[in-house]
């Protein structure tokens, strides 16, 4: 991160969050990346419900999409997928 962070005089006291947590991209914590094989997916959405980060979206088309900005690579989705449609790939 090269963005210059504000100094102590310029941030709110008490640790009050002055930006939404969406700006804190946790995707770079990931060591393993879940990768979707669309052919195998039957849209059961178990991965969507199990993801502790809410990083798996259901699109209007009915497909799922993994948001790698926030996916921490816990691989719960890979474990839960009944179709073997999610594969773990090392970053």
């Amino acid at each position: 991160m090269t963005e210059r962070l504000p100094g102590w005089r310029d941030i709110p006291i008490g640790g009050v969050a002055f930006k939404p947590s969406e700006e804190y991209k946790t995707g770079d914590w990931r060591v393993f990346r879940p990768v979707l094989n669309k052919e195998k997916c039957n849209r059961c959405y178990l991965c969507h419900f199990y993801c502790p980060e809410g990083a798996i979206k259901v699109l209007d088309t009915g497909d799922i999409e993994i948001d790698y900005d926030y996916c921490k690579g816990c691989l719960i989705c890979v474990n839960e997928c009944p179709r073997g449609a999610l594969e773990s790939v090392q970053e």
């Binding site: 102590w8 008490g14 640790g15 009050v16 969050a17």
Partner: peptide, 21 residues
């Protein structure tokens, strides 16, 4: 507002400095 959430090496130090002041 959110008071006192996770505050790592990027902001914790600044919050301590505020307490000094």
């Amino acid at each position: 507002i959110t008071i006192g959430p996770l505050d790592l090496y990027d902001f914790y130090f600044e919050h301590k400095r505020q307490q000094v002041e």
